[in-house]
């Protein structure tokens, strides 16, 4: 079932020119796409290509200048259902320190449901459920400021989960984390996805893209490609054009394959690739 659908969506920002006139700066232009419920979609492209604009269009933080954005059957431009729509789309941004609103973890997670007017006993239940989903229940009474970056991002995800969304949008939520923190956040995202959550992951780490069910590639506000990670990484010209590069192991596999080695051109495991190469070298 389709959960997100964009039909010819455009958005532009105001740009102030040197001479004081006001012009326009394209955010996204003519984007049409559809995401199935339960998918794990990666959204990639260089800095400033419109990824974050697209993310903000998904829950009506930005409203399209033209075209329509529908999530769970609701249109973002319909003011009467906008709050209903936002309940369905949880968002987590890049900087963990900018997303904490309370001085105790459980209060921070409760912020969303409190604003929705959820009855108190249910809030408590939702908060603990959300914290256990991200593996942070033992920190319920801690101060967020003493947590690591990965832990803070998991709290931010719990805050989104407490609203019980159907879609989780992670806008470069792993960019500021160390490798352990990134792994923590990604593990949680994949676990939620396995339980049925639709996940949209915006990232610059191509290794993270490998495990997604599909990839959307943006360039200068346009959606220029979509496909499985293998399809995208097999398309060298596209990657060069949009300034992305495949994970290093895949790059090496592709070069070896082209040079006539008997290896999978899209091999992502350095160990398997190494083993295959050795077999050929020691033949």
């Amino acid at each position: 079932m389709e959960i997100i659908s964009l039909d010819n969506v455009s958005y532009s920002y105001k740009a102030y020119n040197d001479d004081g006139t006001v012009g326009e700066c394209i955010g996204v232009e003519g984007v049409t796409l559809s995401v199935e419920e339960g998918a794990f979609v990666a959204l990639v492209g260089h800095n400033g290509c419109g990824k974050s604009t697209l993310a903000k269009l998904l829950n009506g933080l930005l409203l399209p200048k033209s075209g329509t954005v529908r999530v769970c059957g609701l249109t973002t431009t319909d003011r009467d259902t906008l709050f209903e729509l936002r309940k369905n789309v949880g968002m987590v941004f890049q900087n963990p320190d900018n997303q904490m609103v309370a001085s105790i973890v459980e209060e921070d997670v409760a912020f969303g449901p409190e604003n929705l007017g959820v009855p108190q006993p249910e809030i408590v239940q939702r908060v603990y459920e959300a914290l256990s989903q991200v593996g942070m229940e033992q920190f319920a009474k801690s101060s967020p400021h003493r947590l690591s970056g990965g832990q803070k991002q998991r709290i931010a995800i719990a805050g989104a989960l407490a609203i019980r969304p159907k879609v989780l949008v992670l806008d470069e939520s792993t960019a500021m984390l160390d490798p352990l923190g990134r792994k923590e956040v990604l593990d949680v995202a994949h676990k939620l996805n396995a339980q049925g959550m639709t996940v949209v992951l915006i990232t610059h780490f191509m290794e993270e893209v490998l495990d997604c069910s599909s990839v959307l590639v943006m360039n200068n506000g346009h959606l220029v490609a979509q496909g499985t990670p293998n399809e995208i990484f097999a398309n060298r010209r596209l990657l060069d054009e949009v300034g992305l590069r495949a994970p290093r192991t895949v790059e090496l596999a592709d070069k070896l394959h082209s040079a006539g080695f008997n290896v999978d051109a899209l091999e992502r495991s350095a160990h398997i690739l190494g083993g295959d190469v050795c077999q050929e070298l020691t033949k």
Binding site: P179, T249, G275, C278
Partner: peptide, 20 residues
């Protein structure tokens, strides 16, 4: 130590395990 092994290092390590 929760650090990653770089892709090309992992590949070369694998070769070395096979004596290359």
């Amino acid at each position: 130590m929760n650090l990653e092994v770089p892709a090309m290092a992992a590949f070369c390590n694998e070769l070395e395990r096979h004596g290359v």
